[in-house]
Simulated assay, not measured.
Amino acid sequence: MKADRRKEFYADFTLVIVGIVWGVTFLPMAKALDTNGVFTILFWRFLIAFALLSLISLKFIKRIDPKSIKYGAIVGVFLFAGFALQTFALKYTLSSTVAFITGLIVIFVPFLMFVFFRTKIRAYTYIGASLATVGLYMLCDGELGFGLGELLSLFCAFAYAFEIMLAGYFVKKCEIFVMVATEFLVVCALSLICAVIFEDTPVPVLDREFVVAVGVTATLATVFAFFAQNIAQRYTTPVKTVLILTLEPVVAGFVGYFFGAEILSSWQILGAFVILVGILASELGSYITPKIRRKRGFDE
């Protein structure tokens, strides 16, 4: 039991690093979008990531099996759907609204886990998810209505929720290198199609912002972060995964404030603090509750 808890702790710590990495890459991505389309950036980001992961994983892959390819393709479709829906949502509503509604995956994942896998929802999960949702609303400073942009954001949240839930389920049943590489390749191919349709061409404007954004996101935010996330999900739950990853907008906000000359109000800073409290509540609850149950004579 102690060994399992230790693995879970390391997995959760890894997800903290992933959330920080994704948050840090928000600013260079935003700058690159001034001169390049989102699908063009995604195409090159995931193409480079696929090539790098393929090279890295050559000596680690034991076998390339159809099951791992199928699982990677399914997860890749949901991941791309999240990126695409979020992009189009930004055309119809405020970015803060999109960010908040997308962040509702902290609520969706626990209930999707219950519906599809009958996973119990513990009290600390409710507390952590509720605090994270309130914090997200404060951090995003959203003005909520309900139109096309909000609807697309809602579908985006479900797409990301399914990606996290299914990745956590599939990663325990297949060859992880093959699954993640397939996921990257699917996102790359779908991004290429959308770049041609919506942006006329996938040929980028090779300015400094594009090179920095693609270089950083392909290596750190894609190869490292997605692979680390999938490894971590072997030892922790999708519910804790999505809660910990709410660090992304917190880190993005502070990076924008300190390095991008962006303004954070006291209300938004308080929201970031509330998110951190929600993550901490979930994290402590997942370790303390089993100990209490064992002391009272219950099975975990």
Rank of each mutant, 00 (worst) to 15 (best):
I48W: 08
K70T: 13
G271V: 03
Y137Q: 07
F146Q: 14
A32Y: 12
M165P: 00
V239R: 01
A51N: 04
S153E: 14
A189D: 02
I164G: 01
G142K: 03
A84F: 14
A30E: 14
P290Y: 02
G23N: 06
V223G: 00
V24G: 02
T133K: 00
I20H: 05
L148P: 09
L148R: 15
G103C: 10
F83I: 14
S130N: 07
L284C: 09
A228V: 09
G149E: 07
L185W: 00
I269N: 04
V38R: 01
L270K: 06
V251C: 06
G260W: 04
T133D: 09
V214N: 04
A261K: 15
A167D: 09
T87C: 13
S96V: 05
I127R: 07
S130P: 06
T133I: 08
V77S: 03
E262V: 06
F88H: 12
V223C: 05
A167T: 15
I74Q: 09
E283C: 00
I193H: 01
L33I: 14
L94N: 11
T246V: 11
R293Y: 10
K67D: 06
Y126H: 13
M138C: 04
L90F: 12
S95C: 06
W44N: 03
V98S: 08
G260T: 06
A221I: 07
I64E: 05
T87A: 15
A161L: 10
F258E: 11
N36E: 09
S265F: 05
R45G: 08
G23L: 03
I231R: 11
V214Y: 01
F184I: 03
R5E: 13
Y287T: 04
D34H: 15
L148T: 15
L220R: 04
S95W: 03
T93A: 14
S286D: 15
V187F: 06
F162V: 04
A73H: 08
I105W: 11
